[in-house]
C-alpha cells in the first residue's frame, strides 16, 4: 500500500471487537442490534450484512446478542485478552484458557 493510501485514524477503542461475526451464517436480521441494551451495534447500510460494531467500548458483556441470535454461529463472543479465564486439568495439571 502506498503512503498516500494510508488514512490517518485515531487509536482503536479497546476492546475493539467484543464479538466476531461470521458473514457466511449471519443474514443481517439485526436481532442483535435490537437486543443490545446499550446500542453497541448499528445496522449495516448494506442489507443482509452483519451489523457494524459502533460502540464496543460500552459493551458490558451481557452476552444477549449471542444468546438470542436466531442463527447459531453467526456471532461468536470474543473476550478481550484481559478477561479470558483459566482452568487446570485436575489429573495432568495442564492449564487451559478461554
Amino acid at each position: 500500500m502506498s503512503q498516500k493510501e494510508l488514512m490517518a485514524i485515531p487509536n482503536v477503542t479497546t476492546p475493539n471487537q467484543p464479538v466476531l461475526f461470521d458473514p457466511e451464517i449471519c443474514n443481517g436480521c439485526n436481532h442483535c442490534v435490537e437486543v443490545c441494551q446499550i446500542d453497541v451495534y448499528i445496522p449495516n447500510p448494506e442489507k443482509g450484512k452483519p451489523p457494524i460494531i459502533l460502540h464496543p467500548d460500552e459493551c458490558w458483556y451481557c452476552g444477549c446478542c449471542v444468546n438470542d441470535c436466531p442463527r447459531p454461529g453467526a456471532i461468536k463472543f470474543n473476550w478481550p485478552l484481559q478477561s479470558r479465564g483459566y482452568w487446570k486439568n485436575k489429573e495432568t495439571g495442564e492449564i487451559g484458557q478461554v
Binding site: 452476552g63 463472543f77 483459566y86 482452568w87 487446570k88 486439568n89 485436575k90 489429573e91 478461554v98
Partner: peptide
Amino acid sequence: KIIIDTFNQAGYDGSRDLLQ
C-alpha cells in the same frame, strides 16, 4: 450464560477440570 457457553466451547469440562 455467555461465560458458561464460552468455557464449554473452549473445552472446559467440570468433571475433569478445576476452575481457576
